[in-house]
Amino acid sequence: MELFLHQLLAGIATGGIYACMALAVVMIYQSIDHFNFAQGEMAMFSTYIAWQLLAWGWPYWGAFAATVALSFIGGVVIERTLFKPIRNAPVLSHIVVFIAMFSILNSVAGFTWEYTIKSFPSPFPSEPLFGNRLISAHDLGMIGITVVLLVLLYVLFRHTRLGLAMRAAAANPESARLVGIRVGWMVALGWGLAAAIGAIAGMMIAPIVFLEPNMMLGILLYGLAGAVVGGLTSPVGAVIGGFAVGIVENLAGTFIPVIGKELKLTIALVLIVAVLMIKPSGLFGRTAVSRV
């Protein structure tokens, strides 16, 4: 029982990482209507920027804010320069450009900051909170930040004109133009937001997994699993999905003997596929017509 509880909490903790990433995935999905393979690499790159600022002696929260702002601008710039010119190209060509971005960011990060593992500080206290040893202060802080982000996004999308315009632009660009929405800028804004959220996710994750150019590969995958399990159209679903993946991964890894460490990833994937089989639009996602 003790072991179960411990693994459950550990699952929630890693689930927080995935939830954070899943949120970023859903964000970009909502604003560009497909999945950005380079999302994890963008987050990794942002985290390196934060690391560099810290190395230059910036205070943590200053570096944090600057990184988020820079990432936002970076996201917007990437959309405007890389994707605007090929707006009318087929989706597969876009995917290839994502792949290209992936290799560029990964390679440049490795070249600039080297492939050795770096540690990244946590803004939260290192001693366990309230004397409990099951979940660290950083894990709790990370989960808290995820929840705050979620609330902010919810307010943005559901209760502001800008959010409404962004949703409209993603769902039906042609009609959106016909009501005067500048669709191109909405998409760019979506990229900016996704990059900013990715940056936050990266800075929250790096203290746990350490900083290196390939740190995001597996995490993006789990985040994606979370997003898909939860439903790509639902930010809340994505966060819940992220936690679910974390918990299942930990419990399955501990309690099903043949699985062990190596197959944890495969389990996450089997989970994606299984959920997709039963509910093709995810647990909380909605198909085009169904009232929520």
């Binding site: 290839v96 290209a100 560029i104 990964n106 390679s107 070249f111």
Partner: peptide, 10 residues
């Protein structure tokens, strides 16, 4: 920067 070059070519 081989992979960066590859990405740019792509």
């Amino acid at each position: 920067l081989a992979w960066a070059v590859y990405g740019v070519i792509l």
